[in-house]
Amino acid sequence: MNIFRLTGDLAHLTAIIILLLKIWKTRSCSGISGKSQILFTVVYITRYLDLFTNYISAYNTLMKIIFVVSSLATVFLIYFKFKATYDRNHDTFRMEFLIIPSIILALLIRHEFTVMEVLWTFSIYLEAVAILPQLFLVSKTGEAETITSHYLFALGSYRGLYLLNWIWRYYFENFLDWISIVAGFVQTVLYCDFFYLYVTRVLHGRKLRLPA
């Protein structure tokens, strides 16, 4: 464990908590893409199947369980409990456009051709693009609530911090996994436009509103 990975994990955890609290406190999931949340749930379930096969540490197990359970809870809040507030008219990105290419890519580019390894690789590829329905929804409505902006910032920072973690691990542990690195890089790049708006607007006390 190094400082980048720990802060990355904490940013990830913070993002999830911000989102759950926002929905719970405001009793509304408006401005949140249910599709991105479904995709993240698929990501965690397919990646953390190793919870059943090998034990790494209490930290690792606890975080994996938190991610799976909290993403299921978020999906439940959006599609069941606060269904009436869900922006379904704006959440129109097609999930299959992300899921199918991720499956094909995972079958082609992976380390080993085993069920667990292909599913792990699929989860890495899908995670890289899972935020697209959410970014699409924000661009369609032209704005995001400030709390939603904080959520996106925390979630985007997490993989960026993991990139620093991989540089660290390459130098100090001789650890290198191109699949994670390239997907993590793509994932972080997708947030760049948002990061720019977040720093120039939200941090200056204004609402995130897209330029016309």
């Binding site: 994996k64 290198l176 996994d177 994670s180």
Partner: peptide, 10 residues
């Protein structure tokens, strides 16, 4: 070896 070690990440 490398594949095993990345499994400690989330």
């Amino acid at each position: 070896k490398l594949i095993k070690r990345r499994k400690d990440e989330l």
